[in-house]
């Protein structure tokens, strides 16, 4: 007498074979979709600034007085490096920046360090302790970083003589990458 009822309720207790297969298929699909999600790197989109004109900035110097403006550096190859004193990888990449700067400081290449989301005192302390004589400036409440689409420091941008961003490096940079980036831009006719 109860048999048909059991059959009917089985649809909900998931004991039927089709129901089992269905549940397993859905779960596998779910996992696949989640795993595919890893392909999405939210950082990808930010490379969209490459090939565009670099956002203009005029920022106060970290040490001393005066400002540095991007438009005054037209005609030179500019490397813009966003850093912060609280940022661990910035510390790691710093020696590479020092070496690259020693190599190019007398040429037509300018390195500009932009202090990102940090207090001026901490930034000054960072530069004094680690060395580095390239111009460093303080971002105006993160506005320049926003224009460049900075995800988080350190980030390095390569800007050509025409003011167009030609390359971008997210994360700590090494000397090789710096030299390669700079040389590509130097060879490029403007």
């Amino acid at each position: 007498m109860t048999t048909p009822n059991v059959a009917a309720s089985r649809r909900f207790t998931l004991t039927g074979r089709t129901a089992n297969l269905l549940v397993i298929a859905v779960l596998v699909g779910l996992i696949v979709v989640l795993a595919l999600g890893f392909r999405r790197d939210p950082r990808d989109i930010r490379t969209a600034v490459v090939g565009k004109e670099a956002p203009a900035f005029r920022l106060e110097r970290l040490e001393g007085t005066g400002t540095v403006a991007l438009e005054e550096l037209r005609g030179k190859v500019v490397v813009v490096n966003f850093f912060a004193s609280w940022c661990v990888p910035c510390r790691e990449e710093h020696p590479a920046l020092v070496r690259a700067w020693e190599r190019y400081r007398t040429s037509d290449v300018v390195l500009v360090g932009i202090l990102f989301q940090d207090s001026v005192e901490s930034g000054r302390d960072f530069v004094r302790r680690l060395g580095g004589t390239w111009p460093t400036v303080v971002d105006d409440r993160g506005r320049t970083a926003l224009g460049f689409g900075v995800f988080g420091p350190p980030e390095t941008f390569f800007i050509g003589r025409d003011g167009v961003i030609e390359g971008r490096h997210i994360g700590p940079i090494d000397e090789d990458t710096l030299v390669r980036g700079i040389e590509t831009l130097r060879r490029k006719p403007s």
Binding site: R40, P42, I45, R46, G51, K52, G149, V150
Partner: peptide
């Protein structure tokens, strides 16, 4: 949230966000 969002390049499909 434009710390996380950047405009797509000219003519590109916004395939990622």
């Amino acid at each position: 949230h434009d710390e996380v969002y950047e405009a797509p390049p000219p003519g590109a499909t916004p395939s990622r966000r």
